[in-house]
Structures are given as C-alpha cells and as structure tokens.
Design a protein around this nucleic acid. Structure first.
Lengths: 139, 139
DNA sequence: ATATTTGCAAAGTGTTTGCACGTAA
DNA sequence: TTACGTGCAAACACTTTGCAAATAT
C-alpha cells in the first residue's frame, strides 16, 4: 500500500472503501501537493480510467468533512485541495502563476488584541506570503 | 460629494466618470466594507435603478486593476470587494456566516526564513484569523 | 440483503464577453 | 465627433445534485 497511514486512518474511521476513493486519496499524498479537483481527476484517471469528475468532487468533499483534506483558495481560480498533515502550516503563493509552497513558521505568529476580537471564539490563524516565483520573475 | 478623496483620485487618474461608476464607487466607501458583487449591485441600484450587474463587474475589475479596490475571498462563496485604504490591514473571518472584520496588527507580523523563500520576490504578507462570531456561536 | 457509492447529465453559481446603442470628453 | 462605457443575453468555468445502476459490507 503506497500510503498506509492515510489509508489506515480512512478505514479506521469506518469509511467504505472503493477503487474510486482509493484513487482520489492516492492523488493527495505528498508534500507541497495543492491540486485542483480537475488535477485530482486526471491523476485518479491514470489509476482508474472510468472514474468520474462528480465522484472526485464527492470524495474530496467527504475528505474535507472528515478533516483529512484541507481546501485552500487564493485569489481567483478553482479550489485547491491538500492533504491535512499533522503539523499546521502556512503558504507561499505566486501571484502570477498561482504556485503554492507549504511553509512552516517558527513561533506563534500573531496575537489578535482583545479589543479587535469582536467577541469571536478564535479557531485558527493563517499566514499567506505572496510573491513572484523565480520562473514568473524571469519572464 | 460624500467621498471626495476616492472620487478625486479616480478623476485624477483620468478615469472617465459616469453615473454607474460613481454609484459603484459610492457603495465601496467605509470601514469594514466587504461586499459581494451582487451586494454592490443592489446598493448601486438604490442610487441608479437602471445599472446592470455586468457593469458592476466591469467597474469592480477596473477598480481592482487600479489598486483602488482589493478582492478578498475566504473559503467558499463569491469574491468580496473592499476599498483599499492607505494602511494595510488583515482580517477576522467567521467560518460559519462569512462575516469579515478588518483588523490592524501592531508590528510586522512574520518573517519568512530564507531557506523557505524558494527564490521568490516577496510582495506581501496577509494574516487571517478565523473564528465563530457571537451570533453564530449563540445558535 | 441492503445501505451506500457511482456515473451521467442536468442544473446551479458566480463571472465574463460580444455587440449594438448610448454618452463623456 | 468619437473613443469608450453600458446593457443585454449568451457563454463560460467551476461545483453540486437527482436518479438509476452498481457495489462494499
């Protein structure tokens, strides 16, 4: 099995396993993986030609619902999906081509001062660095 | 004129002024304003009933192109548009209803360590706090 | 055996575009 | 006067959904 950890987690949750779901989960293994639904579809098709795009969407939404996959979307364009690893991380995004890298910052990043909390129950902080990747800067 | 600064900036740029553009620009004045295109449309209609949604989109995109308006989009849902004020700011977002508040953090927020820069020319950092607003927490 | 998942096609959002008409400069 | 903005409707890109057939448990 190429991704025993994820695969086992899914089974342990009692997730009914099918070839389609395996193909989708397989496409989302790795670091710096931030695929659009269509890219996942094409990767999954390589392993299972008869899979449909609707099933890819259904499966991605299930995985997001269980917290195994995280959705990210910066600027325009389709939603991107990434495996939700054990350590939280932030992102570096190219404003021109949309390329995304995972980054890990050292300490706690920022505190939101009480007067600006508006009574919110805080759930998380995300930091997004934007820039131009070397490839885009060269053009 | 209810927003002389923005209005003057637009004229100074040689922007051809029309009733429609005035109505759109007017909808985007204020603090904590983060409107969808449709909300801008409805506000603009109040001042100018014959304005069309296509024109609202065209105008918003023009304003974004000139840097007078900033697009923000967190999680699902349509793009939101906010006036691009003189001070950069970050956001506090309700994960349930999508409400957005502007926040201003004290110091520079985070440095991206060199080994994680990937050769990018850095252009900006954004911090997004997520939480549940008091209204959603109550339900 | 049966509750769940799949694939298809159709519908749903949100946004952009082509073109004839209107209007600011 | 004319280059540019507008409105309409149609097209577009992305995502979700209804339902009959297929399948994991």
């Amino acid at each position: 099995m190429p991704h025993p950890l994820l695969y086992d987690r899914l089974l342990a949750r009692g997730w009914r396993m099918t070839a389609q779901r395996r193909a989708v989960a397989q496409a989302l293994v790795g670091d710096h993986v931030h695929l659009t639904a269509d890219e996942v579809f094409r990767e999954a098709q390589a392993a299972l030609p008869e899979i449909s795009l609707a099933t890819v969407y259904n499966t991605l939404n299930d995985l997001v619902g269980m917290g195994e996959v995280r959705e990210v979307s910066y600027d325009r364009g389709p939603m991107r999906y990434e495996p939700n690893g054990p350590r939280p991380h932030d992102h570096l995004v190219c404003v021109e081509c949309g390329e995304i890298w995972d980054i890990e910052l050292a300490g706690p990043v920022a505190e939101l001062p009480e007067p600006q909390r508006r009574g919110y129950e805080l759930l998380g902080v995300e930091v997004v660095f934007r820039g131009r990747c070397p490839r885009c800067a060269a053009r």
